[in-house]
Design a protein around this nucleic acid. Sequence first.
DNA 1: CAGAATCCGTGTAGATACTG
DNA 2: CAGTATCTACACGGATTCTG
Lengths: 132, 132
Amino acid sequence: MSPPTTSTPAWNVLVATCPSRTSLAEIANKWTAMIVVVLSEGPHRFTQLRDAVDGISGKVLSDTLKRLERDGIVSRAAYDEMPPRVEYSLTPLGQSLHEPLRSLSRWAEAHIEQVLEHRDAYDARPPRTTLG
Amino acid sequence: MSPPTTSTPAWNVLVATCPSRTSLAEIANKWTAMIVVVLSEGPHRFTQLRDAVDGISGKVLSDTLKRLERDGIVSRAAYDEMPPRVEYSLTPLGQSLHEPLRSLSRWAEAHIEQVLEHRDAYDARPPRTTLG
DNA sequence: CAGAATCCGTGTAGATACTG
DNA sequence: CAGTATCTACACGGATTCTG
């Protein structure tokens, strides 16, 4: 039974011993963000995912999917066929995570130019060896 | 089809060569999330931040703040006093990042119990050595 | 106080090769 | 196709020390 949204969460990620930190570390991750965004469009097979998330290696994809499955964010459906077919999809829990993560990746896309400009300016500035 | 947002982002994090990936990697990070959430309440000094983000080490805080400053997300104000005083705050760019990141940490807090239950169930299940 | 510098352990990523 | 198994490598996090 999950608490209604009105209830105050007993957890606080700012506390080191809070278990919610372990899941924050899991979801605040670039691969997780991209995988969840892709899976939000519907079930994907392993190779489909690897193609969609350009540049990810098979091992990293496999590891990440396993962790997400363990956390109940992704579900795995293996069909006993030849050649083998496995489909990954978002659980309801994972779907609730989609919005926050999509916001993040959208932010990255929308503000990358500003970020790049800042980086250029920062890197052009002399190091703060002496007091300015 | 792309949604009718105000401006169409030319960037796509799913493409490996897209520069927005570099900023996604930066912001999709547990320390960044916690720091931005804390700074959203107002400027903080270094030690205040280290206390607020429980468990973070001085080096990691310093490194992360430097990266965030470089990206234009955090601004640093050093006052030439004795003892030294430095205040960190969110730039307007950083403030625009607050909502997405707060959503993430709230998700972690709100769903940690479900996540823990899934982990227990997953770990209790025998390994998938043979076909199920 | 606010850090820089240093050292070090570990996790995570990446490449490659192999299997059912 | 959908992984697993290995190995390597480096970035990251963490603890400690030193300084203006």
